[in-house]
Write a protein that binds this DNA or RNA. Structure first.
Lengths: 267, 267
DNA sequence: CGACCTTTTGAACGTATTCAACCGATGTGG
DNA sequence: CCACATCGGTTGAATACGTTCAAAAGGTCG
């Protein structure tokens, strides 16, 4: 099979584009389908909620927003009002310092929640940018809080999601602090693979939605180093890579590469 | 003034060691003083809560635990039941991978909350270790959830604390991903300085509670590199350092060092 | 006091970065 | 529709930075 023939293992469910042009904004539409029928309910906020709790969640998630590739969902400094659940597409989050340094802090795909960094300052602290045409469900934070009181399981679940984000970031810190270049890229690819697989896509064949530079920014390497590592993996027969299309040929080898000797584990 | 004569700007409030040896465990004691009278109420969980809300918080924070230097508050894999607010002392959090890699993910001082990583898996995902004799307030998580329903402001405040942790970790990712060695140490020192200052201690004179190796683990450097950077700062007259005692001589220079040219900002 | 741990410093080394050139893919306008 | 400009990606060579290895001094704690 040619590497170009990459397809999800499960057909994508077409997204209903609700007709009514609502009062909420140009690219914001009222929802027709709701959480309980969403094909993402297995990986999104509703995880672990029963039917009645999902019904409550549906009450507050009543609008969506479409974004074109390159558009930003929010920017650092924007007032924080809502969280966003990715319904389709792919996002990057980018944090910046005053002195112009910036870094990709995460990539988000369908079912993942965006914007939790904004709660503490009541404004967003990083940028979120669509890497392809995307759609998000808008979760007004004030309503989430109100409803958490009525349905404590929802509140608990939200804690779980935030906690998971903290743990994810611990993993990134570990990667950035103590892995060498090839291990970082291996870890990155394996992480993508797992998450895509959890959403019904192939774990071995996928398309990268981000550039080498964005990968590098995320895993703390220059784009040239990322490119070299890709080439190395390909030369070693671990992956097949052609621009943004990746095929993992030897998953076990990739795992070994990830855990490979590094500067922090030799003594 | 000799560097050795380091003192808090405000005298430490002696901690009342409640007499009753409770049924909760050897080093766990019922509290006598409560949040509303705690000298940390300005920096701890109660921030932003009114009197009645603090009273509710006091209902659940009803025990403390003392730890000796080197003792662990919890370890990865321990069942998660409580969060911990540092009442006195100093902690490090340490995350580890299966393959033996580990890394300090944070240092916690008085008023800071520990254990939020444990919520998502219902077990702790990292170790928390006291770097000096310390005391924590035990905040049973189940009770925190229950009370959040009765006092939504408390629930909101907890979200704020978790969100702040996410933002802090973004900052660490930025540091690890794009700063050179001296910038990292400068950022680390400035962060310590600010946090100590917020607690009524000197911003310029303080004692490091961690080793060079622990600093290095946190900021992604080998202990030798940390040591060299300290020496460099001292040679340049930016700080005075003698073992664990640090005095910042030129705060502005330290800020400049933090923002100094790095591998990610030159093009 | 002695053993051990932490820290400092030096020198050699290795890995990722930098700078540069080139190639291919993509997109735009004539 | 092709020419051209732009962007993204690859590769090579030189460089720089942090690591590694080693030795020794300084603290700390039994």
């Amino acid at each position: 099979m040619p590497i170009d023939a990459l397809k999800p293992k499960r057909a994508a469910i077409p997204i209903v584009n609700s007709a009514s042009s609502s009062d909420a904004g140009d690219n914001v539409v009222r929802m027709r389908t709701a959480c309980s029928h969403c094909h993402l309910r297995e990986v999104c906020l509703p995880v672990g909620l029963n039917q009645e709790q999902v019904n409550r969640l549906e009450q507050i998630v009543h609008a969506r927003r479409r974004l074109r590739k390159g558009e930003s969902l929010y920017r650092a400094g924007d007032p924080f009002r809502s969280l966003f659940a990715v319904r389709s597409g792919f996002f990057k989050s980018r944090a910046a310092t005053v002195d112009g340094r910036d870094q990709v802090t995460g990539f988000q795909m369908a079912g993942e929640l965006l914007g939790m960094d904004g709660i503490c300052m009541e404004q967003h602290t990083c940028d979120s940018i669509a890497l392809e045409d995307s759609e998000v469900c808008i979760v007004p934070y004030a309503m989430l809080e109100t409803l958490s009181v009525q349905a404590p399981a929802l509140g608990h679940h939200f804690h779980t999601v935030m906690s998971r984000e903290i743990v994810r970031e611990h993993g990134v810190m570990l990667l950035l602090g103590s892995m060498r270049a090839e291990s970082r890229l291996a870890a990155f690819l394996l992480n993508l693979s797992q998450r895509l697989n959890a959403r019904g896509f192939s774990a071995t064949d996928f398309i990268l939605r981000m550039t080498r530079e964005e990968i590098g920014s995320y895993i703390g390497l220059k784009l040239e180093t990322v490119s070299r590592a890709f080439s190395k993996f390909q030369d070693d027969g671990v992956i097949e890579v052609k621009q943004k299309q990746v095929r993992i040929l030897d998953m076990a080898a990739l795992h070994r590469l990830m855990g490979g000797a590094n500067s922090a584990s030799n003594h």
